[in-house]
Design a binder for these strands. Sequence first.
DNA 1: CAAGTTCTTGACCATCCAGTCCAGAATGGG
DNA 2: CCCATTCTGGACTGGATGGTCAAGAACTTG
Lengths: 205, 205
Amino acid sequence: MVKNLYRGAMARPRSFDEDEVLRVATDQFWATGYAAARVDDIAAATGLGKGSLYGAFGDKRHLFLRAFDVHCAGLVEGVRRALDGPDASAFERLRAHVLAVADATASDVSLRGCLLAKGTAELSGQDPAVVATARRTFAAIDELIASCVAGAQRAGDIDPDADPARLAGLLLAVLRGIEALGKADTSPDSLRTIAETALAVLPRP
Amino acid sequence: MVKNLYRGAMARPRSFDEDEVLRVATDQFWATGYAAARVDDIAAATGLGKGSLYGAFGDKRHLFLRAFDVHCAGLVEGVRRALDGPDASAFERLRAHVLAVADATASDVSLRGCLLAKGTAELSGQDPAVVATARRTFAAIDELIASCVAGAQRAGDIDPDADPARLAGLLLAVLRGIEALGKADTSPDSLRTIAETALAVLPRP
DNA sequence: CAAGTTCTTGACCATCCAGTCCAGAATGGG
DNA sequence: CCCATTCTGGACTGGATGGTCAAGAACTTG
């Protein structure tokens, strides 16, 4: 249970920023996975005592869930920034984003991949909350892609007869696939080629 | 270290089949992930004492690595069986396989996904042996798909001017993406639609 | 400034778990 | 039929780790 509610006016104030702690915690979970991450390490990395950590977040699982949520929200926000914009440049934004994901995955020397993928892979069979967050996140990204595709259609860069939702689903799967292949140290060239091919097969008007 | 070498004529013979034990171990790792799997549980599930397990496989990590190898080899073998055959039906086999993966992923009620994906996600940052096996496995599947695509091209079902390697890479990414999305409990319909769309965008002659 | 509240620290606890070890069982060779 | 060898089972150990707690620090309110 979370004990320290942080309801505004408190006696002794928090000595830390919750979001900052969550970012550090995210790094720890990211590096090793949920089960292998140690609460002591997270405490050390944040500079907090374990009591504060447990007081603020309840237990390891809830700490992870919070970090996971923040991370996923950030992901969606990043995709939104990358894809939002005027129809005229929608296709170019889509293209840039898909290639950027491939390049980012390829240059991830640590092979840690994305916490969304890692967390979902590790915990989907055991924690419904993780599944729910992952689903929401994927759905949000799917919609962002779909609306970017629709923009590209209006701009005449993608066949207007195609179903934007279907193309978005395909692109989302490709993105997640690139991420998965990247963790197996697939060559940067291969990943980029996959991204290019995905863009190339999109139906032109 | 592995102590029991099993070099043919031994004093007291093994009471178990190594492959069978690896299958059971695979199930355990699959259900919970590597870090969360307990050697005691694996021993219980196989009916072996821990002494025998450690004698035969060395330690938890090597046991996992062996199980992972066997699992991946089986995966490749399954794909080979699904995709090998005459050119005339190559496209149909490809189509059936892609749809089958989507359906299988969708009907995986336990959301455990594929051990290849799960193991790679969890351990790619920490165990080079896992990365190596994953890469080999993906490369093998990639080649199988490429050669099936080439067959479909010879049969006139796919544009002969397309690069089969590029299309194979794209399809592999889509398959891995479907797997990833499936763990987030994406609807069976969505997964199948992604598979259908991937097949639909393949360039026809 | 006293009282009341909440946060912080880190020692402490109870449990869990990978890996060890040994006494005994099963087998083949001599 | 006995001995050397190898496997088996499970009790045991040492260390790690999630979570608790109590004493004290920091702040608000009256």
